[in-house]
Amino acid sequence: MKRSRFTESQIVSILKEADAGAKIKDLCRKHGISDATYYNWKAKYGGMSTSDLRRLKETEAELSQYKKMYAELAHENYALKDLIEKKPLRPLDKREAAQHLVAKHELSKTKACAAVQLSRSSWYRQPSQQAVRDQPVIDALNTMLKKYPRWGFWMCYDRMRLDGHAWNHKRVYRVYTAMKLNLPRRKKRRLPQRVQQPMVVEARANAEWSLDFMSDALYHGRRFRTLNVLDEGVREALDIVIDTSIPGARVVRTLDRLIEWRGKPDAIRVDNGPEYISQVFSEWCEKHGIKLNYIQPGKPNQNAYIERFNRTYRHEVLNAYVFESLRQVREITRAWIIEYNEERPHDSLGKIPPAMFRRQVENARNSTLELCH
């Protein structure tokens, strides 16, 4: 693998120049890199600090050790790796793959058949000429489609049954697809059925978090996004991530950092955005044992806590200032989060700040536990 001429620290400094307001094209021309290289760096190192880079290097060192552990493979595994290019699918293909293992890698017939999941009887059985056996079906399909070129499979099959052909529909469809007569239809991507989740949340920390994205622009027109994380049980703002793009991997990295500081939530409430329905995010939640509560599409009121928080954040920060750089947005937002959690009274919490409410809940819970003991 070609080694990059930039170190991780240099890459982070280049990304910080972009956050300060430098244009991407000017930045790429200055450092002699392409736009694709810049966005690959941003997806991998965006929002990282020196400590994050150190942790990334340690992880890469561990991965290199694991790679060395798997460097020595057994003779049968090496043979299977050489077989990957053949992609055995049908019994005929599996038979050819098994013959390849026996001839080139000198495996026994038993091991070769077991490796490609082929029965011993299929090894010794002589393959039949399928094209000759299916020739009547091919001729019938060609005759039908020559006369009715716009008919689909089921229309052709029903007509063939009326004409007296007794072929099974599975056999006809296999020949139909082998002749590449089936035209794929583009289907609209549909979300799974979402069940409405109740808005009842236990009044304690880490009972349920909610996430949502917002969008705004700097003074010179450059767009940026914010990822807002709220603890619904105590209405406390945990973090607001600000960047020009926040992919699913960045969301996972942010939640890992919050869990190290705050602890793991029991559940997370999100909408159906692409970052939340991505495989990276769903697998991360399953790995950590966190329940995912998706709201129904087009029903933002089912995520009312974070929507109310977004309104406050937009009214008091995004609409109140004219930002010149992402650094300025982050600094003002960081100060506002402290003010929101420590000083700003919250009506639903008895007109006290969220941090004070969380401490009261924790003290009451600790007192109850002491009485029980």
Rank of each mutant, 00 (worst) to 15 (best):
S119I: 06
L101K: 01
G32R: 01
L89H: 14
G289S: 11
A166C: 11
S210F: 02
N228Y: 05
G32S: 08
D139Y: 03
S119P: 01
Y148L: 04
K287Y: 09
H169V: 07
R174K: 07
F281M: 12
M356S: 15
T244K: 04
E208A: 13
L371C: 06
K187L: 04
M48D: 06
Q360H: 14
Y219I: 03
E96R: 13
S122P: 00
V175Q: 01
L238G: 02
N301Q: 15
E232K: 04
N319K: 07
D26T: 11
Y276G: 02
I240K: 01
E8M: 12
A79P: 01
V132W: 05
T7P: 02
N77G: 06
R330K: 13
Q196P: 08
I246W: 14
I290A: 07
L83R: 05
H220A: 11
A103P: 00
H165M: 03
W261K: 08
R358A: 10
L191T: 10
K81S: 10
A112C: 08
Y321F: 13
S210H: 01
D271H: 02
T37K: 00
L118M: 15
F153V: 12
Q10T: 04
Y219H: 10
R5W: 10
H346I: 02
V241Q: 09
M69S: 08
A267Q: 03
K23G: 11
A131N: 14
K42L: 10
K111I: 10
D239R: 05
H220I: 07
N168I: 01
V234G: 02
A20R: 14
N206S: 09
D19W: 09
L238I: 07
Y305G: 02
T177C: 12
T177I: 06
D52Q: 09
L211H: 03
D19F: 01
K23L: 11
V322F: 13
L80A: 11
M214Y: 00
R120T: 09
D266F: 03
Q279M: 04
Q10G: 03
L218G: 09
R150C: 04
A267G: 12
M1H: 05
D134R: 08
R308Q: 08
Y313F: 15
L211W: 06
K351N: 12
Q126F: 06
V201N: 14
K187W: 05
E316D: 13
R204A: 14
H220Q: 15
H105P: 04
Y70A: 07
G32K: 02
H105I: 14
P88W: 03
P136V: 03
P274V: 03
N206V: 08
Y173T: 03
P91H: 11
P354T: 02
G21C: 09
D239K: 12
H346L: 08
P265D: 15
E370N: 14
Y70I: 11
A18P: 00
Y38V: 00
A20P: 00
T244P: 00
E316W: 05
V200A: 11
R159Q: 06
N206M: 13
A18Q: 03
E85I: 06
A103G: 03
H373W: 02
I138E: 04
S367N: 14
T254I: 08
A355Q: 14
K351G: 05
L218F: 08
